[in-house]
Amino acid sequence: MTVFFSKACELGIQAVLYLSIKKQNVIVSADEISQELKVPKEFVSKILQKLTYHGITGSKKGKGGGFYLAKNPGNIRLIDIIEAIDGLDIFKSCVLGFPGCSNENPCPVHDKWGKLREEAYKMFSEETLSQLKEKTIQKILNL
């Protein structure tokens, strides 16, 4: 687990990346995703339902049901997934949790964290699922 995002967010990113390497409009069961990512099916389903609510994934109920990308992979950025699950507070708040941390009243790591936070936000905002497809395929194959 990382310090940056919740476990749910990490899994949400992984699940959406997994869906992005499938052919467009292919419905993938939560069972398949959970087996491929080696996580509980119920956890996958709950997170993907949240992403469906936010319009990133879609779902089909019943026999042959599952999840699919609701948008073209070139139109989904990693920041969209992060915002839907964890929100964007990590990119706005003090990394040490000090209330009122600001440029005028900085915490001990304010300046360094500010630069890292900006770079991280920029990276997650620029990367689309399409741009990450080949690297995702390699990672999934090596799980």
Rank of each mutant, 00 (worst) to 15 (best):
K92S: 11
P99S: 09
A70T: 04
D86Q: 09
E104L: 12
A70Y: 11
I79C: 01
G62Y: 02
S102C: 06
R77F: 03
P73R: 10
L78N: 00
V109R: 14
G64P: 03
I82G: 00
D89F: 02
K60P: 04
N105C: 05
I90E: 09
G64T: 02
I56S: 03
C94N: 03
H54L: 02
A70M: 08
G58N: 04
C101Y: 00
H54I: 00
N103W: 08
V95W: 10
G74V: 11
S93H: 11
K92C: 02
F91H: 06
Y68Q: 03
A70P: 02
G97Y: 06
G65E: 06
E104K: 14
C107I: 08
I82L: 03
N105A: 06
P73N: 10
G66A: 09
D80F: 00
G65L: 13
G65F: 12
L96E: 14
N75C: 11
I76G: 09
K61A: 15
V109I: 11
I85V: 15
L96I: 13
V109Q: 13
S93D: 13
F67S: 07
G55P: 06
G66N: 08
G64C: 11
D80M: 05
I90T: 04
P99A: 04
D80A: 03
Y53C: 02
N72K: 10
K61L: 14
G64K: 07
G64A: 11
P99M: 01
D86K: 06
D86R: 06
L96K: 10
G65M: 12
F98Q: 10
G100L: 06
E104P: 00
E104A: 12
F98Y: 14
I56A: 04
T57L: 06
G74A: 14
G87K: 07
G97D: 08
K63M: 08
I76T: 13
C107Q: 03
Y68I: 10
A70S: 14
F91D: 03
S93R: 13
G65N: 04
G65Q: 04
I79W: 02
I85A: 05
D80N: 15
N105F: 09
P73C: 05
A70R: 10
S93N: 13
G74K: 06
G65W: 10
D89P: 00
G64E: 06
F91N: 04
R77P: 00
P99Q: 05
E83Q: 12
T57D: 04
D89H: 08
G87Y: 07
N72S: 14
F67Q: 12
G58I: 00
N72A: 11
P108H: 09
I85D: 06
H54W: 05
G55M: 10
N75V: 01
T57F: 05
K60T: 15
H54F: 12
K61D: 10
F91A: 11
V95L: 12
V95N: 12
D80Q: 09
R77H: 15
V109P: 00
I79P: 01
I76V: 15
L96S: 04
G87H: 10
